[in-house]
Amino acid sequence: MVDVWLDAVTPKDSLLVYSLLPVLREKGYDTIVTAKKQTQTTEVLEILNIPYICIGKYGETLRDKLVEEQKRSLRFIELFDRIGLPKVLWTHGDVSAIRTAFGLQIPVVYSNDTPHAIHVAKLVCPLVDWLVAPKPFGKSWSTFGLQKSRIILYDGVEEVAWLAKPAAKRPDFLDILRDKERVILFRNVEYKASYCKDLKVNVWRLIEELSKIATVVYLPRYREEKEQIEHLKDIWMPPKTVLTSHLLPYVDIVIGSGGTICRESALMGIPTISFHFWDAIAKYLRKRSFPIRYIADTKEIIKKTKRIIKNPDKFKVNTKDKLTQLQSPIVPAARCIEEYFAK
């Protein structure tokens, strides 16, 4: 019988699973990993050599999202009919996994740092047993129906969990970047997500202008993005899914929507511009002198990028000591999980 069920529905979830699994296995727990087929989630698990069971896929329209969530719940039930019920679920917030666990009376440990995903928070917060969250957000999740006493805060960010841990071998296809004089890493907004609204920047125009300044490494979220940029000259898209930590040594500046990749790059001391999100985590990192800033105007982004590209080393920051001062979510998450085996 499985002790701990871990569910991943984003690449970030996969990286957190990678960081959490060794801790759980060291304690002797049997684990199972399930993953949804969407936005490089399963590809990252494969890069990290993590066995998983693929359950469900991404729904693009509102109707499709609802249908796929119901299908996923049914497939979980079929899985547990075969292998037995796990004793606890760890998740980063998938609705179908949490609803299934709640319905089957499986305790839920919920790690999260995206309260802006309001639709998900409203659905899952009343159902979880513990929430492990970064201190900058405080106990704001309580507004969604979770008792403050069930919210565990840590003084750090989730990305610390895997940046401090060596991950897989760097792929050979990245060698092409060695000969590039200047490199910009670009990550688009998650425009199919329910919470993605009010984007102020014309992303495709921005990319075109950036490609005139330096080589742009474009990390897509969705397959159709390739068609939007294939006519541009100085843009390179990795042929396979790649970990950000493998790319960053080649990069001079990162421009993105403000999510995981922007946090990773800032934590590693690379100048970072967020053009969409400027949440409590970004402000927290900025306050601690990590090189991240918010600019939501295309002309200003181009102006700042040109300045940085002229002398990237001037803007890079040695963050080695700063990183050691940030806490990881893995320890509190593992403690919450362990509670269900101490009884």
Rank of each mutant, 00 (worst) to 15 (best):
S211A: 09
L199W: 13
G256Q: 00
I207V: 15
R178D: 12
K240P: 01
F186R: 00
E209F: 03
Y222A: 10
S245W: 09
S245K: 11
Y222Q: 06
I184G: 04
M237A: 10
D179E: 15
M237Y: 04
R178N: 14
D172W: 12
G258K: 00
E225W: 06
V160A: 11
L177E: 03
S149R: 13
P238S: 02
V203M: 12
I152Q: 05
R187E: 13
L177A: 07
L174K: 02
S257M: 11
K169C: 08
I253W: 09
P166M: 04
D179P: 00
P171H: 00
H231N: 14
K148D: 12
C196F: 12
Y191P: 05
V217S: 08
L232N: 01
T215E: 08
V201N: 05
T241C: 11
S257Q: 10
I229S: 07
Y195R: 05
V157F: 10
W204Q: 05
L210S: 04
L206Y: 07
I229R: 00
T244D: 09
L232G: 01
K169L: 13
S245C: 08
A167T: 12
K169H: 11
A168T: 03
S194G: 04
V160R: 09
L199M: 13
S211R: 01
K240T: 11
A167K: 12
V183H: 03
L185V: 06
E225Q: 12
I253N: 06
Y195M: 09
S149L: 03
K240E: 15
N202L: 05
I151V: 09
N188F: 10
V216G: 00
G256M: 02
